[in-house]
Simulated scan of single mutants.
Amino acid sequence: MILILLLLFLSSCHTYKQSEQNQQGNPKSYQIDGAGKAVPERIVMGWNAFGTTDTYIEQNHVSPNLNVVSPRWLSLDSEHLITGEVDPAYVEWAHQSGKQVWAFLGNQFDPELTDKLLSDKNNHVKMAEKLEKVFVEHKIDGINVDFENIKMENKDDFVSFVRQLKKSFSPHGIIVSVDITRENPDPYWSGSYDRAELGKIADYIIMMGYDEDLGAGEKIGSVASLPWVEEGIQRLIKDVPPSKVILAVPFYMREWVTNLKTKKETRYDRNMLEVDEIIKDKGLKKKWDKNVKQNYVEFVENDEKHQIWLEDKESLQQRVELVNKYDLKGTAAWFIGQETPEIWPVFH
Rank of each mutant, 00 (worst) to 15 (best):
G98Q: 08
N67L: 10
I220A: 10
R72E: 09
Q338R: 06
A224Y: 01
F158R: 07
H61P: 00
W344A: 01
N123H: 10
Q18G: 06
K286Q: 14
I237A: 02
Y30C: 03
V240C: 00
V300M: 10
I32S: 01
G34M: 07
V240Y: 00
N122G: 10
C13W: 05
V249D: 01
F104E: 05
N60W: 06
Q59R: 15
A128K: 02
N271P: 00
E58I: 02
E274Q: 14
N107M: 13
K37I: 07
I43V: 15
I343K: 00
W189G: 04
A49M: 08
S222M: 06
I278E: 05
N22R: 02
T181W: 03
D276M: 03
W102I: 02
Q318P: 01
D33K: 02
C13I: 04
D269K: 11
T331N: 03
N154A: 01
K200S: 04
S63A: 14
F169S: 05
N324F: 02
K17M: 09
E304T: 15
I180W: 04
I220M: 14
L310C: 10
Y90K: 06
E92M: 02
Y188K: 12
I150T: 03
E314I: 09
T258I: 15
E132M: 10
K28T: 12
P187D: 07
L5V: 06
Q59K: 14
P64Q: 07
D146G: 01
I279C: 05
S177D: 09
E112L: 11
E255Q: 13
V125K: 12
K263G: 07
I278M: 10
K290E: 13
I205K: 01
K293L: 07
Y30E: 02
I206T: 13
S315F: 04
N123V: 05
N122A: 09
G191N: 09
L5F: 13
W93N: 09
I279T: 02
F161Y: 15
V62Y: 07
F109K: 09
I308W: 04
Q18R: 13
E58Y: 07
E79A: 14
V62D: 11
D281H: 13
Y210H: 14
L74I: 05
D146C: 04
I82D: 02
A333N: 03
M207V: 15
D157R: 04
N123L: 05
D33T: 08
V86Y: 03
L316N: 01
L260N: 12
N65S: 06
K264N: 12
S97P: 02
A35V: 03
F135S: 00
G337C: 05
K329Q: 13
A128W: 03
Q96E: 15
